[in-house]
């Protein structure tokens, strides 16, 4: 078939635009690597395990920020995962009008800008944590005997940030899980009900067994969101550049450190911040790749792609 000049131009133009996705991804890596070169040269891989952050002395380390990132993400997942799973289970089985309204309500959580979560966290959740939740957990339940739980608290810190992140990632995980649950062949579910399984047994053994990879994909998507969330965390984490004593102490995350320090930083500190950015990029790239792998594997299994 003969292609006209216009068609050719159109195709190459579109190809160029599409290739921009690859270029952008490559550009992110290139720019952060170039920007952080000085920090890596100065500190080497010791940067990853050093907990120093002293702009005056010119000593920087990634450990506090990485620890804070991992801890907040872990708390968010632990809190959001069972809730998202249960909510998705309810929404797939609920009568249509109820599922529609409540499903929209959950979806709307994802539409709220993150800075609003930050404000809500700062002015509503932090005082609540300080006056009621944390005293209850520490003094009434005596949780401070456990490892990683410290006695002194002021409302700010890893725990509060984790709770806000949990609310923020819940709709994302829930949406992916709902898609996966809805796509379970009805025949499988009906036959399980037919042999006398309860709803919970069907959900656990049939639906989850069938869509495990898809569910994992949803989990990774939520994980990726929690890792890189900036504003909501920035407002409530306390922004302390040192290793946390426990989950109630102030800390920082990679994204919050970047947002907080980058505009005023220069020289070695800027380079160290770029290095933190590179660590975040690699973490997020790994997580997203895993989620793509899981969702793809799920789709292949269902024969839809």
């Amino acid at each position: 078939m003969k292609h006209s000049f216009g068609d050719c131009l159109f195709k190459w133009g579109c190809l160029f635009c599409a290739a921009m996705a690859l270029l952008l991804l490559f550009g992110f890596f290139a720019q952060l690597t170039a920007g952080s070169a000085e920090a890596w040269r100065r500190f080497g891989f010791g940067f990853l395990v050093s907990s120093a952050w002293d702009p005056v002395a010119g000593k920087f380390g990634a450990l506090p920020a990485v620890t804070g990132t991992l801890l907040t993400t872990a708390i968010a997942l632990i809190a959001a995962l069972p809730l998202a799973f249960a909510a998705a289970m309810y929404l797939t089985d609920a009568p249509r009008p109820i599922a529609l309204v409540l499903g929209h309500a959950v979806d709307l959580l994802a539409a709220i800008p993150s800075v609003i979560y930050g404000m809500w966290g700062l002015f509503v959740l932090v005082p609540l944590m300080q006056d009621h939740v944390q005293p209850f957990l520490v003094e009434r339940l005596g949780l401070c005997g456990l490892p990683f739980v410290n006695r002194d608290f002021n409302g700010f810190g890893i725990f509060t940030a984790g709770i806000i992140l949990a609310v923020m990632i819940l709709p994302y995980i829930c949406a992916v899980m709902r898609d996966v649950f809805v796509m379970t062949p009805p025949v499988l579910r009906e036959s399980a009900f037919g042999v006398g399984c309860t709803r919970w047994e069907v959900a656990r053994d049939i639906v989850l067994g069938y869509g495990m990879r898809g569910v994992m994909g949803g989990v990774f998507i939520g994980l990726g969101r929690a890792l890189g969330e900036t504003m909501a965390v920035l407002f409530v984490i306390g922004n302390v550049m040192k290793m946390p004593d426990g989950i109630f102490s102030g800390s920082t995350t990679i994204a919050a450190t970047l947002a907080n320090n980058f505009p005023e930083a220069d020289g070695l500190q800027k380079s160290a911040l770029f290095a933190l950015g590179l660590i975040l990029l690699c973490m997020s790239f790994g997580i997203q790749s895993l989620s793509q792998y899981c969702l793809r594997a799920d789709a292949v299994r269902r024969g839809s792609r």
Binding site: L32, L227, L280, Q288
Partner: peptide, 9 residues
Amino acid sequence: VLMGMPSVL
């Protein structure tokens, strides 16, 4: 992957 990239980056 870009869709899940932290916006701060």
